[in-house]
Nucleic acid binder design. Structure first.
Length: 497
RNA sequence: GGCCCCAUCGUCUAGUGGACUAGGACUCAGCCCUUUCAAGGCUGCGACUGGGGUUCGAAUCCCCAUGGGGCUACCA
C-alpha cells in the first residue's frame, strides 16, 4: 500500500452535478480509501456570475447518493476550514500580495476594451504592464482604473509538468501569458485559488479532467513562485458525448431518438441503483482486471490505482449501464429491493410508500419482477394491475383477449373453462392452478401459450406481465374470477359485433 | 490559426517486444429453454488508423502523416 493520499473534489457550484464530475469524485474517493487517506470536498465558488445557490445541495446529494462520503468539507469542517473559497477571500489576497511584493506577480491596469482588442486579433495578453514604474501605476490609480494581479511568468525556458498517467508534459514557459491571479473584484481566479488551497490543505494528488492540462504548467509556475512543492497531477480523460462528437455537454443529447442526460439527478430519478452507477463509472477510464465487469466497492478500493487509469477520452456506454443496473437488481435481497422499489412505485402508482412496505402483495410480486426490470421505474407498469381494483382494468382493445391462433369464439370458450377451474381449484395456489389449466388446455387441444394468454390480458389488462398463475395467487380467487368475468364479458360483446 | 492530449471490435476495454489464431463486456443476430415478457445457456458477426523505421521478432518502442479531442477569459 502506498502512502495515505489527500485528494479533493473541487466542483464549481454552477448547476446540476455532472456525470463527469461524479466520476472524478469517485476516483478521488477510491484513491483516498485505497491509500487510507482523506477525501476532501471543496467548493470553488469564485465566479460570482455563474454561481447557483442550489447547486451545492445538488453536489452533496449526488455524492452521497453514490456513497462517496467526504472526510472534510463545507458542511462538516476539518483542520483546514473553511472549505468554501468565497469564505477564503482574504487568504488569497494575502498570498497575491506576497507574490507582488516578491516581484513574482504584478498589478495590471489593462481595461476590458483593451483586452478585447488583443483578443480580436487572436493575441494573448502582451504583458504591457509587467514593468510599470511606480509613477505609471500611480497615474493609473489616479485615473480610477481597476486592476488585477497577474503572474510574472518566465520569459524563456521550458516548464515541465509531470502527469501520473501521461508522463511529462513540456511547454515553452513564455506561452504562459501572465495569467490573472486576482480579479478586480478581489476574488481569485481558479489558478490562484487552486494552488493556494491545494498547498494549504496539503493535497497530495490533484485529480481533475484533462481539460485542465493546458493550465497545469501555469499552476506549476504558481507553485514555483511560492516556492512550494506541487502535488502530483492526475488528469482524467474527458467523457465524450454519446453522439461521439465532442465532450459531453451540459445539456441532454439525443442519439438515435434516445435522450441522454449528463446530470446525476436524472439518473437518481430514473431508477438507477447507486451500486450500479458506482460500478459503471469506475470502469470509465479504469478497469477491474480486464475480465470482470461486476465488482463491489470493497474490491474496487482494494485494486484501484490512479497509475492504471487510461488516457483515452471515451463516451459513456449507456446500454451497459442499463445492463449493469439489471445485474444489480437481480442480485438484491428481496427486502432490499422492496425498500428500493417502494418510493418509485408510490410515486408512479399514486400509492403510499409506507403502506407498500407492509403490503403482502408487493412481497409476492418482488420475485416475479426481479428478473424483468433493468430500472426501478420499470416495475410500475409490470405490477400496476395488482394494486388496482377489478373495475379499473379495462379492455379498450378486446381483440387482445384472443389467444394466438385462436378465434374469438375459442377464446370465449377458454375463458369460460378457466372460470370453471378457478371456482373449483383447491387450494388456490400455484401447483394446483397450473396443473388444472394445463390439463384443460390439453383436453381442449389448445397450445398452452394460446390458452393462457386470454387470462393474462383479462387479469392484468396487459399482454406483457409477470407469470400468470403467480399473478392469480397475488389477486386471490375472488378478484381473479371477477377480472376473468369482466374480460369474458368484453370479449363476448366484441365477438358479437 | 497556435499550444497540448489521445489513437485496439459499433461502444467500454484487456494487452507494458515473443505466451496474439488479439482476450472480456455491452449491443446486435441465430439457436436452446419457455406461459407473454424477461432472465439464463450456447453460437456467431466484429478491431490493432496509415506509412516509415528500430529489432531475429512490434498491437506493444521511435518518427511522420491522418483522424479525434482539449485549451486558447478578470469561467471553472
Amino acid at each position: 500500500m502506498t502512502k495515505p493520499a489527500r485528494v479533493r473534489f473541487a466542483p464549481s457550484p454552477t448547476g446540476y452535478l455532472h456525470l463527469g464530475g461524479l466520476r472524478t469524485a469517485l476516483f478521488d474517493w477510491l484513491m483516498a480509501r485505497h491509500t487510507g487517506g482523506q477525501f476532501i470536498l471543496r467548493v470553488e465558488d469564485t465566479d460570482q456570475k455563474r454561481y447557483n445557490p442550489d447547486s451545492v445541495q445538488f453536489i452533496f446529494d449526488g455524492l452521497r447518493w453514490l456513497g462517496l462520503e467526504w472526510d472534510e468539507g463545507p458542511d462538516k469542517g476539518g483542520p483546514f476550514a473553511p472549505y468554501v473559497q468565497s469564505e477564503r477571500r482574504e487568504i488569497y489576497q494575502q498570498y497575491a500580495e506576497w507574490l507582488v511584493d516578491q516581484g513574482k506577480a504584478y498589478r495590471c491596469y489593462t481595461s476590458e476594451a483593451e483586452l478585447e482588442e488583443l483578443r480580436a486579433k487572436g493575441q494573448p495578453y502582451d504583458r504591457r504592464h509587467r514593468n510599470l514604474t511606480a509613477a505609471q501605476r500611480a497615474a493609473f490609480e489616479a485615473e480610477g482604473r481597476s486592476s488585477v494581479v497577474r503572474l510574472a511568468a518566465p520569459l524563456e525556458g521550458k516548464t515541465v509538468v509531470h502527469d501520473v498517467i501521461r508522463g511529462d508534459i513540456v511547454v515553452e514557459s513564455a506561452s504562459v501569458a501572465d495569467p490573472v491571479l486576482l480579479k478586480s473584484d478581489g476574488l481569485p481566479t481558479y489558478h490562484l485559488a487552486v494552488v493556494v488551497d491545494d498547498h494549504l490543505m496539503e493535497i497530495t494528488h490533484v485529480l481533475r479532467g484533462e481539460e485542465w492540462i493546458p493550465s497545469a504548467p501555469l499552476h506549476k509556475l504558481v507553485f514555483d513562485a511560492f516556492g512550494w512543492e506541487a502535488p502530483a497531477f492526475v488528469h482524467l480523460p474527458v467523457i465524450l458525448d454519446p453522439s461521439g462528437k465532442g465532450k459531453m455537454s451540459k445539456r441532454k443529447s439525443v442519439v438515435e431518438g434516445k435522450e441522454f442526460s449528463p446530470f446525476v439527478h436524472d439518473y437518481m430519478q430514473a431508477g438507477y441503483l447507486p451500486d450500479a452507477m458506482f460500478n459503471f463509472l469506475a470502469t470509465m477510464g479504469w478497469n477491474f482486471d480486464g475480465e470482470r465487469e461486476v465488482f463491489s466497492r470493497e474490491e474496487a478500493i482494494e485494486r484501484f490505482d490512479v497509475a492504471d487509469i487510461s488516457a483515452k477520452a471515451a463516451a459513456l456506454p449507456f446500454a451497459k449501464l442499463d445492463w449493469l443496473n439489471g445485474v444489480y437488481i437481480r442480485q438484491m435481497e428481496a427486502n432490499a429491493l422492496k425498500q428500493a422499489l417502494a418510493p418509485y412505485l408510490a410515486r408512479d402508482l399514486g400509492l403510499d410508500a409506507a403502506a407498500l412496505l407492509t403490503d403482502p402483495r408487493l412481497d409476492a410480486l418482488i420475485p416475479l419482477i426481479r428478473e424483468r426490470i433493468k430500472l426501478l421505474t420499470e416495475a410500475a407498469p409490470l405490477v400496476d394491475w395488482a394494486f388496482a381494483t377489478a373495475g379499473t382494468i379495462t379492455y379498450p382493445n378486446p381483440a387482445l383477449l384472443i389467444g394466438k391462433k385462436l378465434t374469438a369464439a375459442q377464446s370465449v370458450d377458454v375463458l369460460r373453462a378457466g372460470l370453471e377451474l378457478l371456482a373449483a381449484v383447491e387450494p388456490f395456489e400455484l401447483p394446483a392452478l397450473e396443473a388444472d389449466f394445463r390439463a384443460r388446455a390439453e383436453a381442449m387441444q389448445i397450445p398452452v401459450g394460446s390458452f393462457f394468454a386470454p387470462f393474462r390480458v383479462a387479469i392484468t389488462g396487459r399482454t406483457v406481465a409477470p407469470p400468470l398463475f403467480e399473478s392469480m395467487v397475488v389477486l386471490g380467487r375472488a378478484e381473479t374470477m371477477t377480472r376473468v368475468e369482466n374480460g369474458l364479458a368484453a370479449l363476448t360483446s366484441f365477438a358479437a359485433e
